[in-house]
Amino acid sequence: MRLEKMTVLVTGASSGIGEAVSSHFRREGARLLLTGRREQMHSAQPDDVYVPGDLNDEAFVAGLAAQATESFGSVDVVVLNHGLQASSPLTEMAHEDARNVLESNLLSAFLVMKHFAPLMPAAGGSFVCVSSRLGMVGMAGQVLYSAAKGGLIMLAKGAAIEWAPRNIRVNVVAPGLTSTPVIEAAIQRRPDPEAYRRERASQMPLQRLATPEEVADAILFLASSESSYITGAVLPVDGGYTAF
């Protein structure tokens, strides 16, 4: 029960890594405030508070913070798991698509940090930002996504220094290719899904995709007191991809 009686906000909670995080944290005793774009989160439990909405909208984020204060009084941990990926050659990406990628992966994280850091108790708290291996290395066709996720890493590092006097820790998990419903659906759209899966897995030294639960394990470590002297760090969970 590493998070017993602690209140946790999980963004992007309705599927994939966010859903795995919610399940892990619930088992560890956390009280959960969950948000996502879907109107309903089918795996939410009766004691969870699920509030759907758009984190690019500062009014919604401010309202979510007010909901947290009303329901729980304070927030001990924030897991910033939301984001948007758009694949396109740089010269072919529409301005609006580029704006959406930057807002959904970086500026919305800034808004959540801005409104939720003041809710953390005097004893401190923990932010865990979910970036990507592509926040650490570049990839053709993912330039704006990589820039946004790299920006998220630097946002976390700066906040870690700024909030250290308040004992608010800010760390980053950088997953590699993970077997989420979105990724699995993309694989199944390929002419030969299993061949494509093997091709992608072969790019990882561990020769497989991550599971959402493996990423959630790393997030739990950085959220809990087990990492009490770690802040401003980036933990790759990528099967060795960024070790090259």
Rank of each mutant, 00 (worst) to 15 (best):
R2Y: 07
L3H: 11
L9H: 04
V21M: 01
S22M: 08
R27T: 12
R37Y: 07
D47G: 09
D47L: 10
Y50G: 06
V51C: 13
L55R: 05
D57R: 10
A59F: 04
V61N: 05
G63Y: 04
A66H: 14
Q67T: 15
Q67N: 08
T69G: 11
S71V: 10
P89M: 10
P89I: 12
E92G: 14
E92W: 03
S104L: 04
A109P: 03
L111P: 00
M113A: 15
F116Y: 06
A122P: 00
G135L: 02
G135R: 04
M136L: 15
M136N: 08
Q142T: 12
Y145I: 10
A148M: 01
L152G: 08
L152K: 07
I153H: 01
M154P: 00
I168M: 09
I168N: 07
V170H: 06
N171V: 12
V173N: 05
P175R: 07
S179L: 13
T180P: 08
V182M: 12
A186C: 01
P191I: 06
P193I: 09
Y196H: 14
R200T: 09
A201E: 15
R208T: 12
E213P: 00
E214T: 13
V215W: 03
A216S: 08
S227R: 07
Y229K: 00
V234P: 04
D238H: 09
D238Q: 11
